[in-house]
Amino acid sequence: MPGPLGDATRRRLTEAAATRLADDGYEVAQPETRAEPPAVATRGDATALAVEPLTPDDATATVIASRLAHALSRDRRAYFVVDDDATAERVRSLLADPPLLVAERDGRREFHAGPDRIPVAGGGYACVRFEGLGEPTFAWRETDTPVGPVPAGPGIDPAAVDESGRPVVPRLVCEVDGRVVAVLAGVESLREPPAEAFPYAYSRHPDDKRFRVRRGADGAVVESASGFAPMRAAGYVPIPMPIVPEHVLGPAFAPDRDSDTEAAATDLDDAWDLIRVDAVEGS
């Protein structure tokens, strides 16, 4: 819900939450900067609460992860506020087991696609050629295949296997509409992936400001476009960075491959709360 209507809803939700928290004995401050949540509640030695109002359009993995990360970085607990059951259920679903993941099975995760681009070694951002109608659907998941060397970031051993022959570093697979377009040695390879891990990469030339699309395998220029829209019209689409919980929230939320996933979910449970207020509450 962008624009004035969404802003009005967020203000109303913030005021309703502030009133409720004040009634519970919290001291509520409303920072005058967009670098902070619209309200922060404190009470004695208790963990401070970052009040985060959510409209239905805000209930996405990107928004939830970003606001949760902001609260954690300031030693606060995220206090999400909604005014309808559907949004509340969506937030709970995103933060439930597996938290901030599409799915998890046998220690291998499936990730939400985020808004960020993927910078590749040598400059530019990963992209793929897509000639279908509409927008492509990207999916990121961990798997055990293929075994053997795959593109990897610095300091990562992609060929290591455990006693059962399972890769020590899970393979990170990117699919576009069900078609595999890239395989990396684990999520840490996203920090500085080699260009050859992806079909193409694009960058803006410093002299003529045109976008150059290069083939990942050999660096050959396959397209030159005057801007992003013409590049997209030529069939080249940026590959979105997956939302990896430990990258967004911090290393404490990395999976412990030697234990069950319930412990990690419990840790994240301690980082947030959710309340539903009536549509007219606080108005």
Rank of each mutant, 00 (worst) to 15 (best):
G6Q: 05
G6P: 02
D7L: 10
A8Y: 08
R10N: 11
R12H: 04
E15T: 14
A17T: 10
R20N: 10
L21H: 05
D23L: 14
D24N: 14
V28F: 08
V28Y: 05
A29P: 00
Q30V: 03
P31C: 01
E36P: 02
P37D: 02
P38C: 09
P38V: 05
R43C: 10
R43G: 01
G44Y: 09
A46W: 12
A46D: 15
A46P: 00
A48E: 02
L49D: 06
L49Y: 00
P56F: 04
A59Y: 02
T60A: 04
A61K: 12
I64K: 07
A65R: 05
A65V: 01
S66L: 14
L68S: 08
A69S: 05
H70Q: 15
D75K: 14
Y79M: 09
Y79T: 01
V81L: 06
V82F: 04
A86H: 04
V91M: 11
L94T: 06
D97P: 07
A103D: 15
R109W: 07
F111G: 05
R117T: 14
P119M: 11
V120A: 09
Y125G: 10
Y125D: 15
A126H: 05
A126Q: 10
F130M: 03
F130H: 12
L133Q: 13
G134H: 07
F138L: 00
R141M: 13
T143G: 13
P146E: 12
G148R: 02
G148W: 01
P151A: 10
A152R: 04
G153K: 11
P158T: 01
D162K: 03
S164T: 14
R171Q: 15
L172S: 00
E175W: 06
V176D: 04
G178Q: 00
G178Y: 06
A185D: 02
A185Q: 08
E188P: 10
E188N: 12
L190G: 00
L190K: 03
P193R: 07
Y202F: 12
S203W: 02
S203M: 09
P206S: 08
D207F: 14
R210I: 01
R210T: 13
R210Q: 15
R212W: 09
R214T: 13
D218K: 03
E223I: 03
A225L: 11
G227A: 12
A233W: 12
G235Y: 06
P238W: 12
P240R: 03
M241T: 09
H247E: 13
V248I: 05
G250D: 01
A254N: 07
A254R: 11
P255Q: 11
R257D: 11
T261V: 10
T261M: 06
A265K: 02
T266A: 13
D273R: 15
D273H: 14
D273E: 15
D273P: 00
L274I: 08
E281G: 02
